[in-house]
């Protein structure tokens, strides 16, 4: 029973969602299933929040390893929760929007949360440089092609690329670096991307059928029937 019910739900929901694409009367059912998912996800959020508080609360209580991080996590969690729930310092009071300008929640979001998120995102610039350095080392033929293509594209997106090959006559305009960069992006690169996309689409169809037909059961913790 524990296995059959999830398989039956998967079969029904999967079939209805496919049918809802082709048969307009079933569209509403498809939308309803998506709403059911959202409702379940909302309830599951309590589980997530509870799990966060329990794990970090335990670590803090036992003064476990790195308990300082747990303290910061719990403080952040509760301060944001209280500021949002009770709409502290909200100019319009409890009935106004929680994200109103001047509310504590919005201030915490704008002045602490956003800059912290932006800082993490900014790390990407350094990681791109370090990853590119490793990826573009001409260790073999493929890496050398990658290096040349990347060099042309980088140069083609800068004024230097325009100045360096701007003298080439129009009849040979394809070898001008900016045009070469455009060609690489719109022909070989796009063809590769599309091949990957076709593969992904077919993979999704195959995986979905395995799930709907109950052939794939690993997510239930079992290998086969």
């Amino acid at each position: 029973m524990k296995r059959q019910v999830p398989l039956l739900i998967t079969l029904i929901v999967g079939t209805v969602l496919i049918l809802s694409v082709f048969f307009p009367p079933a569209e509403r059912l498809g939308e309803d299933f998506s709403i059911f998912f959202d409702i379940i996800a909302v309830f599951a959020f309590f589980l997530g929040g509870g799990n966060l508080v329990r794990i970090h609360g335990n670590r803090l209580y036992r003064k476990g390893k790195d308990w300082g991080f747990s303290l910061v996590t719990l403080l952040g969690f509760f301060i944001m929760l209280i500021a949002g729930l009770f709409k502290l310092w909200n100019p319009g009071g409890i009935s106004a929007d929680v994200t109103a300008t001047g509310s504590l929640f919005q201030m915490l979001y704008d002045w602490i949360f956003n800059p912290l998120g932006a800082t993490m995102y900014a790390l990407l610039a350094f990681y791109v440089a370090s990853a590119s350095y490793r990826a573009f080392r001409a260790k073999n033929r493929e890496a050398t092609i990658l290096l040349i293509a990347a060099f042309v594209i980088l140069l083609g997106r800068t004024p230097l690329g325009v100045y360096a090959t701007g003298w080439i006559p129009e009849s040979f305009s394809l070898v001008q670096i900016p045009n070469l960069a455009i060609w690489i992006m719109s022909s070989p690169n796009l063809a590769g991307q599309r091949a990957i996309m076709i593969g992904i689409a077919l993979g999704v169809i195959s995986m979905s059928l395995r799930l709907i037909l109950g052939v794939e059961r690993t997510y239930l913790g079992v290998d086969s029937e």
Partner: peptide, 28 residues
Amino acid sequence: GEELFAASAYLSNEPKQLGSLKGQDVGK
């Protein structure tokens, strides 16, 4: 891409799951 979706079937080595990968090749 597709290798991610094929992974579980591939690792299971179960004929039925591998069959689904073969069906995918018809699409390709």
